[in-house]
């Protein structure tokens, strides 16, 4: 009966994951390996293809609305203002051709790109929050502790969720409609060029563990339920919840990967690497805030990064 409970928990979290995250690993890997046939992503590898990228998105009509049809229009415009955005002149619009030609200088380009990444990240934080709320027992925790768990967990979760979208050559963006090459990201001016490299390095190694979507769901819940986040008021119930999810994850890995030795241990070790990546990422953002005159940080991300590490 205990194993049955753990299986039920895994199933529940997998369903919550599918409900809240529009691009699954299964779908992303299908796109990356060219199994989607006529729906191949548009490749951005230089400034010219970047400009054409928007045209591509406009012609295609974004499938976001299918996923998010239950949300208000307001939300949809926040979504489309991201990299997949067709909203020209939006504050966060990056692929908007008009804004590129109007503002001209290459310098502003990285900032605009950075802003559209922020928009998508903020939306992802909302998705992660909804996922967290579906973890059994999470909503019953002290509200201040829920905030702390999210504050410290979301960037780690974001980075883990990027891994399935990446391979050694680049990353899917805009809900899998666009593939942006690693070389292009590296060619942006400093420090923007340094932002993604550590994530590529981490992702290539993480992907070697070959987790599926149900295991990803459990791992994300484990990360969120970290009892050692600074400032937690009531650690015990968080640790108890995490322990149950850890058992479920361990069982799931044994069933799905019977010949992969120590996979559970290897996965837990990734959490150490992850914390270092987040610390470096936050420091880079804080540096950007100081050095870039025109930079504005999205209010939600600002809230999360304030006094974080």
């Amino acid at each position: 009966p205990e194993a049955a409970d753990l299986r039920a928990l895994a199933r529940h979290l997998y369903e919550a994951y599918l409900k809240n995250f529009p691009l699954t690993k299964a779908k992303a890997r299908a796109i990356l390996s060219g199994k989607t046939g006529d729906n191949a992503p548009f490749v951005i590898h230089d400034m010219k293809s970047l400009m054409e990228g928007e045209q591509f998105i406009n012609c295609r009509q974004i499938p976001l609305k299918e996923h998010h049809h239950h949300h208000q229009q307001q939300q949809t415009s926040a979504l489309t203002a991201g990299l997949g955005g067709a909203h020209q002149g939006s504050e966060y619009g990056f692929l908007g051709m008009t804004s590129i030609s109007e503002e001209g200088p290459q310098d502003a380009l990285e900032l605009r790109f950075f802003h559209s990444c922020q928009s998508r990240s903020a939306e992802a934080v909302r998705e992660i929050t909804e996922f967290a709320k579906s973890i059994p027992g999470f909503s019953e925790l002290d509200l201040n502790d829920q905030v702390t768990l999210l504050k410290y967990g979301v960037i780690e979760v974001l980075i883990i969720m990027m891994a399935p979208l990446m391979n050694k050559d680049g990353t899917l963006i805009s809900y899998g409609q666009i593939f942006m090459t690693r070389e292009f990201l590296k060619s942006l001016r400093k420090p923007f060029s340094q932002m993604m490299e550590p994530k590529f390095e981490f992702s290539v190694k993480f992907n070697m563990l070959e987790l599926d979507d149900s295991e990803m769901a459990l791992f994300l819940a484990v990360i969120i339920l970290s009892g050692d986040r600074p400032g937690l008021l009531n650690v015990k119930p968080i640790e108890q919840l995490q322990e149950t999810v850890l058992h479920s994850l361990e069982l799931q890995l044994k069933l799905n990967h019977p010949i992969s030795l120590q996979l559970f241990a290897k996965l837990l070790q990734k959490m150490t690497d992850l914390r270092q990546i987040v610390t470096d990422h936050v420091h880079l953002i804080q540096l950007l805030k100081k050095t870039e005159v025109d930079m504005c940080l999205h209010p939600l991300l600002q809230e999360i990064m304030k006094d974080l590490y």
Binding site: Q72, T129, L150
Partner: peptide, 20 residues
Amino acid sequence: KEKHKILHQLLQNSTSPVDL
């Protein structure tokens, strides 16, 4: 609490989305 206003809102509202 004021420091994490949006996170609080996201945690407490399930249907009405915060204007991100």
